[in-house]
């Protein structure tokens, strides 16, 4: 799907839906996922269709992923950091359950 032109320096480790993957410093999450052969990052909210990064410049909102528990982050604008937990999204996000509830 995509390969890297230059072999990269120290790898950043991250996980996508639990699967360990690597990227390089300077990668956005979207770039690291494309380089790892991951294209479809979510299922659309209305029709449940698979969607992939489309514009890579923060305009189309197709690359929304959950990053370290925060939903709907733009993968193409978010720099990859070591140890990130990235998850694909399926349909509408949920609100954090019972936040602020009485104990």
């Amino acid at each position: 799907m995509f390969r890297r032109l230059r072999e990269a320096a120290p790898a950043l480790r991250f996980r996508f839906d639990g699967e360990p993957l690597t990227g390089v410093p300077g990668d956005t999450i979207a770039a690291a996922l494309l380089a790892s052969g991951r294209l479809a990052l979510r299922k659309s909210v209305v029709g449940g269709e698979p969607r992939a990064p489309y514009c890579m410049m923060g305009v189309c909102f197709e690359c929304l992923v959950e990053v370290d528990g925060v939903a709907n982050r733009q993968a193409c604008l978010t720099p990859l950091t070591d140890g990130m937990e990235v998850r694909s999204q399926s349909g509408a996000r949920t609100i954090r359950p019972a936040a602020g509830q009485e104990p």
Binding site: V70, N72, R93, I95, A99, G100
Partner: peptide, 9 residues
């Protein structure tokens, strides 16, 4: 009213 909304866009 719904604290879970704090995180929502």
């Amino acid at each position: 009213m719904f604290p879970g909304l704090a995180d929502v866009n």
